[in-house]
Amino acid sequence: MSTKRTITFEVMRYRPESDAEPSYQTYSVPCEQEWVVLDALLYIKDNLDTTLSFRWSCHMAVCGSCGMIVNGEPMLSCKAFLRDYPDVIRVEPLTNFPIERDLVIVMDDFITKLASIKPYIIPKEERKVEQGEYLQTPVQLKKFKQYTLCINCLLCYAACPQYGLVPEFVGPAALALAHRYNLDSRDNGRSQRQEIAASHDGVWECSFVGACSEVCPKHVDPAGAIQQTKIASTMDYFLGFLQGGS
């Protein structure tokens, strides 16, 4: 019994060596019922057009490489089940990023910003190995655990209109990760991260559209992290006045 369903894929193509700008190419793909968009792209690459370029790896919403715009919505293509889509599916590279080739985007800007917020524990006290591990209670973990689930898939940047309009904006995932380490009981690096997070291009470029949190495949809620950082930074600012600081 054949359960195949033919779906038309309109895929954005951009070949830098020959194209002045992107255009759409249409592929007709015989799809299995349980496929995701990534399966169909792999079918195209294996059977219809070997020149189509896209990133992917784990096929299970962990690696964060296969983010694309599927019918207008930022999605992990490995998590975009065909049963949820009509017979015509449009696939584009993530918005707000330069296109390297076809569905592959340039993510250098994000990597630079991610590094700038120091996404690692800056310990309160340096401990030697023989002193044992840094201890943390389950409640202390709970405070930030949600923000550790980020897989750097960049769907939030693709969804964020302010990042599109103001490319200097540090952006959702990087600010959420800054918040994650700031909340960690083992960490003492908040003042260093605030140099970026509380700057003009940090949380203050955010106008709480909230789209980042809606598209996040791991429910990290970067928008919430940014609002919490705004509140904390505002407290810092006014307390600084009271204490006669800057």
């Binding site: 830098p16 390297e100 309009l165």
Partner: peptide
């Protein structure tokens, strides 16, 4: 082969028409 990344333009005065959640935000 040299790189030539393509930057898609964003309409500064009508970007919010692209998505229902942007319209609700506005």
């Amino acid at each position: 082969m040299s790189r030539k990344p393509y930057i898609r333009p964003i309409p500064k005065t009508s970007w919010y028409m692209r998505d229902g959640r942007y319209k609700r935000y506005m």
